[in-house]
Amino acid sequence: MSDHTHGAGSAGPSHRAVETGVGIGMAVFALIVIAGSIKAGIGWGAEGPKAGFFPFYVGLIILVCSIVNVVQVRTERSRGDLFADWGQIRQVLAVVIPSTIYVAVVPWTGIYFASAALIGFFMRRLGNYAWSLILPIAIGVPLAFFIVFERWFLVPLPKGPIEAWLGY
């Protein structure tokens, strides 16, 4: 899946840089795990291994592996592979950024309104659909979820001022 043929002259972060970053990220994660385990106790207590015993060695193994991975990437002769070109990254961010905003506003606006906005935004921005198609879908889908979750299955989802105004 990750084999892409990149057009000549395309630019972007190198595979090597990203892999190094991921490896360092894992090493940091490992250090956090190790620190947390030491706090919980890594010895062999009266009731067998203490709470931190397993996570401590798990953290240690992750640390060793990530160091090996980083060293391998750095010593390998660079083939100049790109992780992805900037155009592709822009595409990915076109999903990541609105989704992140979506997730961030759900506590304030409730999930239904935010979902309608997300669907509308995607269809307009990425699909260039006419509003006459966008509106029914953007409103209809959250409405259908509302009926299924709140009315049929009695699952309360986050709701905001608009639902409160409507009496929910």
């Binding site: 999903v95 989704s99 979506y102 997730v103 759900v106 999930i111 979902s115 997300l118 669907i119 935004f121 995607f122 269809m123 990425l126 699909g127 659909y129 879908i137 889908v141 959250p142 979820f145 979750f149 989802l157």
Partner: peptide
């Protein structure tokens, strides 16, 4: 089309 189904999947995932 992807630009319709993708946000719906995102919503389902979030729920």
């Amino acid at each position: 089309p992807f630009s319709i189904i993708a946000p719906i999947i995102l919503v389902i995932c979030a729920i």
